[in-house]
Design a binder for these strands. Sequence first.
DNA 1: CCTCGATGTTGAAACGTTTTAACACCTGAG
DNA 2: CTCAGGTGTTAAAACGTTTCAACATCGAGG
Lengths: 335, 335
Amino acid sequence: MKPSVGIRDVAQHAGVSNATVSNVLNRPDVVAPATRQRVLAAIEELGFVRNESARQLRAGRSRVIAYVVLDAANPFFTDVARGVEDAAREAGLALFLCNSASDAGREREYLELLHEQRVEGILVTPVDGESAHIAERGTPVVLVDRESTDGTHCSVAVDDVLGGELAVTHLIENGHTRIAMVGGPLSIQQVRDRYEGALRALANAGLPADSLTLLETRGLQVAEGRGAGERLVGLPSSRRPTAAFCANDLLALGLLQSMTQQGLKVPDDLAVVGYDDIEFAAAAAVPLTSVRQPRDQLGRTAASLLLAENEPDHEHRHVKFQPELVVRASSAVRR
Amino acid sequence: MKPSVGIRDVAQHAGVSNATVSNVLNRPDVVAPATRQRVLAAIEELGFVRNESARQLRAGRSRVIAYVVLDAANPFFTDVARGVEDAAREAGLALFLCNSASDAGREREYLELLHEQRVEGILVTPVDGESAHIAERGTPVVLVDRESTDGTHCSVAVDDVLGGELAVTHLIENGHTRIAMVGGPLSIQQVRDRYEGALRALANAGLPADSLTLLETRGLQVAEGRGAGERLVGLPSSRRPTAAFCANDLLALGLLQSMTQQGLKVPDDLAVVGYDDIEFAAAAAVPLTSVRQPRDQLGRTAASLLLAENEPDHEHRHVKFQPELVVRASSAVRR
DNA sequence: CCTCGATGTTGAAACGTTTTAACACCTGAG
DNA sequence: CTCAGGTGTTAAAACGTTTCAACATCGAGG
């Protein structure tokens, strides 16, 4: 469509060589002020836009990192992304966000594309345990919110087992002995870990393992939480749990909504604990007790690990943060 | 670090020319099955990853579009992005998300970078009215959730004036005559339009213009809504509005939260109407009346307009959708 | 036996930058 | 007057692909 003006056109128009134009672009200080002005004027006049592909091809480096998130609609991940972006900007890098939407195929496609693009680095919160396709291929990869199982990558995670334990211990201390765990699919590592933590809490308290009912969902979205709520209410009230621990806040919010719709009170009829402590948790119908993760720090740390990958003698590091229980009305002590 | 294996290495290893390798990659059908296998094996064995920069430089086209969003933490935009991505994938394109975070400088940087990257197209929900820096520079740009003022771009928008009118008319019909408009900064087009709609609703009902108090905020996040709530409660109760129309749901949720904390009831002490009808609106402390926009369709349409930009005799189109009021408990009729 | 078309394969020329080493020029010191 | 050292500028060689026209091979039709 357009004649596409290149660096040579600018050079010709300004009466200099293309090397000089390149210098104006990359090392403005080495070129004489008068020439620089002339070149800048030519760039302006011709509407020249530098071709990043060519630049990258020759220079070998990119100015971009990418973060492949599990679910862009989950505020938890956008908050982590915020931390990543802040750290990236300080290093002069831009951040591209990609949404795998919990789909392993999409995740693979994005990773493939990003490798081909030769971005400076890739952050990923993987869909499932199989990290085969995340193998190193020249571009540094850091796992976010997931521990690297085989140690082939750096990783930044939160102790989800502890998180689950905190949540369920809290419920037990509040007198609950029939508890539901809402979450799934179990192929997601985070869900498995939080479940394991819940079981550990039971064991610690000397409760039988069948005190915990697993209500497995097909995903971690609000709608799935609503569905779980309906299933829960369908149970005979003698066997119905008095408390629910949800694998994330989206589920908890859906569950909450479903309870209200069906005329049940939270926390009186059902205590609810969520996970992530997203901003909406505190603004919910009943303010939500939740397990808080250091989202911002998670992101910042992930970014800095990624940037450190290029250092000469790099060893993969695995950072693990501690979660923290935030108690609100949804799990208040039963009257 | 790595010797970086290229197409020539693969060619040599498979005993063919580089052109053949390229063919295997781009037109697998033209190369003989036996050769193809051999080449694929070599690719696998050497761990070859195609260099997209080189490809794009030569081929001239990219396989990516980007969406520069106003606030990645706002579920409204991630929902729009979902629609964009669905449409993009159908066309074989990947989507990169960039977050301007309501910062004009960041927006400009991202746009600049994307132009330099020569992506296939750019979608943007701009920070402010000044669209000077969004000027065409070879890469098609489509405005999302904002009407193109000077007609230099395609755009997809929703009639925000009508939306504001719907919201406030609803409040007036419910008997409110002292209404607050919460939102800002007014440099954001959407806020201005919704405000204008609110004023129109007053005029239609024959109410004086001072029935509407503008509570201007510095942004459209939950925290700003909480702040507005405090300001609102600080007013002498004789002059305090009995209803609030918020420029988006995040503000409304913050406002709601602040009301509850301060011991005021919604809708009895204050009716609240939000805007966007994000999923969390229905799950809020008091289910939120809100103005719904066709988020998914907004995204899909934007993407298809973008893809149409490359057609031979393209004329810029401006699509405008109608919003719809969804009434819930937060604005129920006063008892 | 010659020709023709179909089928696979290839050499070499782009694509638009960055970068390196060399070059021209000038200024001030010896 | 010469020379060392600095300051600006440049020619040309990459970077790793895609693509085009040309080329080889082969089976079939005349």
